[in-house]
Design a protein around this nucleic acid. Structure first.
Lengths: 249, 249
DNA sequence: ATCAAAACAGCAAAAACTTGCAAAAAATCC
DNA sequence: GGATTTTTTGCAAGTTTTTGCTGTTTTGAT
């Protein structure tokens, strides 16, 4: 194998997952860890990625500079994704909804972390297929053009016949009184079925969307088990949500 | 063998695979490795490729993601796609399998051409969602990592409950006697169900794959209605397929 | 503060590259 | 046609690059 191939693989992995571990790379490429280390060092010198202890990350990853609004939001989502991945156990059967936050979760799952994932989101499915140890089941149905999300009776029926360990819901909007709300009725139907199909439900929400309400209601906060935000769990902004017996992470 | 021939071969290999090993070239060309080395050095000096330790790469190597190479087959596939799209009627309900040829078909469909499409292929679904007038239904199931194609009982069951106007099959391999063949048994199950669910079936095949046989059989040529290749319909290479009452386009 | 994992520096074997050279092949000239 | 020059090719000796391993130092998490 050519050195250039290796380095291209490393770069691809970094872009795909935001961060990679040298150990995983060494195993995937079937070379010693020293070789990977040297490659990463080179790529770092060429500013193609950022070398960190034990691995490498893409640029703009832990970039908390508030100049660029988008990367600022991204870093929040990455923070949420990290917390969420730490809640997963190997071999679990889970459900994942769509959305950019969930996409970051999919990117953050380690390369050799066995999971079975059901999802109605094309983006999530595509991302998860990068992981060789993840079995991906797509919940087929009519696809929305904008969101690339499957909706309709087929999806709901499939979900009704399913029982999984965990549901990870990239929530639209969140409010203590109103609960989870959305503006898309069709999506609500699917998300409700997802919650029903799972023993536990985790909702992900960047703090910007706390205390905002949309037209339709997915569920109340009593129906979910865990709330993940990018904030410190003790942050006072989360006080409104403490009365429910949620685990706040 | 002429030096010029050798260098042409080397360039072809580089363009096709985006990377080559000097050892492989020396073996394929039956010359010493020094000769190959000198050839590559020359081509590098002429900026025709990039010489690297142990081999050579094409210039865009670092940019190409792994699948979208193979530009030499692309023109043929585009020709097939054009012919195929001309066979479609507005408002039809169709089935599309996966594969790069079918992907070209999806790219070729006019922006405001109303269709309803069922597909088990992620790539096809993603592409079709670019078209606002196309309703896309994904046939959900277990996704194959490599092909991003949904397989398994869920897909087959869904297909059994379906009846559509047309099935567009990006065939694996094609032979007059053996019919359509594949090396993946799971995919066969799905393709068979697709053919059953459709009133008419069109198969797409670049002429390179004519007269090639794989391990398992999808169906015989009597079960399909139309064959689309990049060749002129009167081309003698297609003679073997005329005994079946196929429409050859 | 402790301890395991990660980074580093140096080393040695293997693979690849360079240079020089001579034989073989091709081209040129008489 | 035959002799001479030029180009091409393969080989051998020496150099560089790459890679994995060892032992040591540094780092980061508890």
């Amino acid at each position: 194998m050519l050195k250039e191939e290796r380095q291209k693989f490393i770069l691809d992995q970094v872009h795909l997952h935001h961060r990679v571990l040298l150990n995983d790379l060494a195993e995937a490429l079937e070379v010693s860890i020293d070789t990977v280390r040297r490659d990463v060092k080179e790529l770092d010198k060429e500013k193609k990625l950022k070398k960190v202890h034990g691995g490498a990350t893409s640029f703009g990853f832990m970039n908390f500079s508030k100049e660029d609004g988008n990367t600022y939001l991204l870093s929040k989502k990455i923070k949420i994704a990290e917390k969420t991945v730490s809640l997963l156990s190997e071999g679990q059967v889970i459900l994942m909804s769509g959305g950019t936050t969930n996409l970051e979760v999919a990117k953050m799952i380690p390369r050799k972390f066995p999971l079975t994932v059901f999802t109605p989101s094309l983006h999530i499915a595509v991302q998860l297929l990068e992981l060789p140890e993840v079995e991906v089941f797509f919940l087929g149905g009519k696809l929305q053009h904008e969101s690339k999300f499957a909706i309709g009776g087929t999806v709901v029926n499939a979900l009704n016949r399913l029982k999984v360990d965990l549901c990870i819901l990239g929530t639209g909007y969140l409010d203590a009184e109103a609960g989870l709300t959305e503006f898309d009725w069709e999506v609500i139907q699917v998300k409700q079925a997802m919650i029903q199909a799972a023993k536990r439900t985790i909702i992900l929400s960047v703090s910007d969307k706390l205390h905002s309400v949309q037209k339709y209601r997915t569920c109340s906060l009593t129906e979910v088990d865990t709330l993940v935000t990018e904030l410190d769990p003790m942050d006072s902004k989360l006080d409104a949500f403490r009365p429910f017996h949620l685990k706040i992470v």
